Amino acid sequence: MYLDCAATTPLEPRVVEEVTRYLVSDFGNAGSRTHGYGQTAKSRVQAAREEVATVVDAGPDEVIFTSGATESNNLALLGLVDHGKATSRRHVITTAIEHKAVLEPVDELRRRGFTVTLLQADTSGRVDPDDLRRALRPDTLLVSIMHANNETGVLQPLADITAAMDHHDAFLHVDAAQAFGKELEPLRQSRIDLISVSGHKIYAPKGVGALIARRRGFVRPPLRPLQYGGGQERGLRAGTLAVALIAGLGTAAALAVADQRDRRRTCERLRSRLMAALAPFDPEFNGDQDHVLPSTLNVSIPNGHGGYLDSEAVMLALKPVVAISNGSACTSHSYAPSHVLEAMGLSTDRVQGALRFSWSHLTPEPDWDALSGAFSGLLS
Score class of each variant (00 low, 15 high):
121 A>H: 06
236 L>F: 08
97 I>L: 14
245 L>I: 03
333 H>P: 02
236 L>K: 10
38 G>L: 02
91 H>R: 06
317 A>T: 05
259 D>Q: 13
154 V>K: 06
232 Q>V: 14
306 G>L: 00
326 N>P: 02
373 G>S: 14
64 I>S: 02
305 H>M: 07
347 S>I: 06
358 S>V: 07
249 L>R: 00
261 R>G: 10
58 A>R: 08
8 T>L: 12
68 G>K: 08
266 T>V: 14
46 Q>S: 12
214 R>W: 04
106 V>Q: 01
205 P>M: 11
306 G>Y: 06
8 T>A: 13
292 V>N: 11
245 L>E: 06
111 R>N: 15
59 G>V: 11
55 V>S: 02
364 P>D: 07
52 V>L: 06
56 V>M: 08
106 V>D: 10
90 R>V: 12
115 T>F: 05
173 H>N: 05
58 A>L: 09
152 T>L: 08
201 K>G: 11
331 T>G: 06
90 R>Y: 08
284 E>K: 04
300 S>E: 02
276 A>E: 14
253 A>T: 04
288 D>Q: 10
367 D>E: 10
281 F>A: 01
189 Q>N: 15
176 A>K: 05
27 F>Y: 15
273 R>D: 09
82 D>W: 09
184 L>S: 04
48 A>Y: 06
255 L>M: 05
343 A>V: 04
165 M>T: 03
370 A>H: 08
329 A>K: 15
352 Q>H: 15
267 C>D: 05
244 A>H: 14
95 T>Y: 03
203 Y>V: 08
295 S>G: 13
206 K>T: 13
247 A>N: 00
295 S>A: 14
